[in-house]
Every structure is written in structure tokens, then in C-alpha cells.
């Protein structure tokens, strides 16, 4: 293949692959900045992906589908919020449970609606988004950056995650702020899933999120819990994803080292398997402070007890 074509196809794929990550990472941002750990992003995305595809199929209207995806994510977020905010359950345990719940409930509903747990019916091209969600994603990045930078609403979220007592003292309810963070988070993660099923592909397929929720969480951490850097991290992760997929299809030049071992090392480093784990290795090196340092919100993961 011609190198310029290759660069364009990887570039285009990067922008497309990163869109669902951006939605989910922004969702994670809302909940984590307000102090609620969000390892349930994966489950919320999965619910969103299914609901979007199902509603688009049933109503022939992708806009309704996209909105349904957001609300499906929000529904998961409501369950999550009740347990972690009101019942003060452990956020990591419940987060895992929500992802398990979504991966069990989605095929259950899919079977009832479409008599198929594996996928929803194919959506015709006219009923799919070509690029709208990608533009929405980037507009959201900028508006959420402004929201956190300039508005009191954004400030409340930051304080709910950094110093909840101060926020409560100033007359803003921490629990309510965290609830709004969790709900927005669920909606955005749901939109991310919807992007996956009705923009990047033509239907929902079983477990189609394939770890993207966790990857979005990683991007959020790599981006230091800030919207613009998190979006750039999503772009970088999307690039590795696109590169890995592209490399599976083409012949890679193979230098012949005189030592057999070096040849094996080389083929490992250019394999799709390796390129697809680069984002995770990168995230580990960053959270471990080997390259830069990412600091989480101070009160992240601590349940808030009113009337202390």
C-alpha cells in the first residue's frame, strides 16, 4: 500500500476510534472529579451501545438512538449512584458489579427484543451517523473545559472531589453534587457506547466495548483528570488501536538480525498484540510516576457522610 494512503487511513481511523473513548473519558471526568471512582464505565458503555442500536432499529431514527444510548448509560449510573452515594457501598466493588450487571442484562434484553444474544439487526447506512458524534465529542471537550474552568457548577464538582467538607460548609450539598456528577457521567458514557454501535459500526455486537471503558479510564488518568489532556490521551490511545488493526492487514518490513532472539523480539514489538497493549503500559508508567505524574482528586473514593 502507498504510504500516504496508509497514513490517511490510520489518521482517519484514529479520529473515529477515539470518539467513544472521549465520551467515556469525559463521563469518567465528571464522576471522578466529584469524588466517585468510576470503574463502571465499561458497563455503562455496553448498555449505551445496545440501547442505541436497539432504539435506532426499532424507530429508524439514529438521533433517538443516540439519546437512548445516553439514557441507558444513565440508568446504570442511577443504580451505581444509589449504592455508592446513598448506601455508601464500596465504589470499586459496586463498579465491578455494574459492569457484570450490564454484560448480563444486555444479552437478556437483546434475546427478548430480537431473539438473538449476539447482535442486533444490521442498521442501514442511511440510519447511521457518519461523523456527527465525533464532532459532538470534540465540542463537549471544549464546553466541559469551559464548564470546569469558568462556571460555579464546575467548581462545585472540583470541591466535591477535593475537599467535600469545604463545599458543604459553603452551602452546596455534596451528595447532590456527586449525584449530578454520576448522572452526567452515565449519560456521557452511554453516548460513547452509542457512538460505537451506531456510528463506528452497523449494529450492537456481543461485548463490543471490549475494554474501551477501562481504556477511557486510563486516558482520563493519563490526562491528569483534565478534559483537554484526557481527550488528547484518547486520541493517542485511538491511534494505537487503529495502528494495531491496520498492522494486522499489511506486511511489515522485517530486518534480519544475525541473532535469532533479536528477530523474535522485533516480531513481538511490531505485532498487533504488542501495539494494542502500549496504551496500558503507558498508563502504568504514568501512574507509577516513571514518566510525569498524575494526581487524583483528594477525596476520590471516600463516601461522604453528611452531619458529621
Amino acid at each position: 500500500m502507498d504510504w500516504i494512503n496508509l497514513a490517511f487511513s490510520i489518521g482517519g481511523a484514529t479520529i473515529r476510534m477515539s470518539a467513544p473513548l472521549i465520551f467515556a473519558a469525559l463521563g469518567g471526568l465528571f464522576s471522578e472529579r466529584s469524588g466517585i471512582i468510576n470503574i463502571a464505565l465499561e458497563g455503562k458503555m455496553l448498555a449505551g451501545a445496545f440501547a442505541a442500536a436497539a432504539v435506532t432499529t426499532l424507530t429508524q431514527n439514529p438521533i433517538l438512538g443516540l439519546i437512548a444510548g445516553g439514557f441507558a448509560g444513565m440508568l446504570m449510573a442511577i443504580v451505581y449512584g444509589i449504592f455508592v452515594i446513598n448506601f455508601k457501598a464500596n465504589q470499586i466493588v459496586v463498579g465491578t458489579a455494574i459492569t457484570i450487571l450490564a454484560s448480563g442484562t444486555v444479552p437478556f434484553v437483546s434475546q427478548i427484543l430480537f431473539q438473538n444474544t449476539g447482535s442486533t439487526p444490521e442498521i442501514p447506512i442511511g440510519n447511521r451517523f457518519i461523523y456527527t458524534p465525533i464532532i459532538i465529542a470534540w465540542l463537549l471537550v471544549i464546553s466541559i473545559w469551559c464548564l470546569f474552568k469558568f462556571s460555579p457548577y464546575g467548581m462545585w464538582h472540583k470541591f466535591a472531589g477535593e475537599h467535600p467538607d469545604a463545599l458543604q460548609t459553603s452551602g452546596i450539598d455534596v451528595i447532590r453534587t456527586r449525584w449530578s456528577g454520576v448522572l452526567v457521567s452515565g449519560f456521557l458514557a452511554g453516548l460513547g457506547g452509542a457512538t460505537l454501535s451506531i456510528c463506528l459500526s452497523s449494529s450492537y455486537t456481543r461485548n463490543m466495548t471490549a475494554g474501551r471503558g477501562y481504556m477511557a479510564l486510563a486516558a482520563l488518568i493519563v490526562g491528569g483528570w483534565k478534559p483537554i489532556t484526557a481527550a488528547l490521551a484518547c486520541l493517542a490511545f485511538g491511534f494505537f488501536d487503529a495502528l494495531g488493526i491496520t498492522l494486522q492487514g499489511i506486511q511489515i518490513p522485517k530486518p534480519e538480525f544475525s541473532i535469532q532472539f533479536l528477530n523474535q523480539i522485533w516480531s513481538f514489538f511490531v505485532s498487533a498484540q504488542f501495539i494494542q497493549i502500549i496504551p496500558y503500559i503507558l498508563t502504568i508508567t504514568i501512574v507509577a510516576g516513571f514518566v510525569g505524574k498524575s494526581r487524583p482528586p483528594k477525596a476520590l473514593g471516600q463516601p461522604y457522610l453528611r452531619n458529621r
Binding site: 471512582i37 470503574i39 470499586i92 479510564l217 486510563a218 497493549i277 503500559i281 498508563t283 502504568i284 501512574v287
Partner: peptide, 10 residues
């Protein structure tokens, strides 16, 4: 939590 999730994928 972060590192073990990442190590799963690796």
C-alpha cells in the same frame, strides 16, 4: 486498582 486493570489487558 488502576495497575491491576492495566496488567489484565497486558
Amino acid at each position: 486498582v488502576i495497575t491491576t486493570i492495566m496488567l489484565n489487558f497486558i
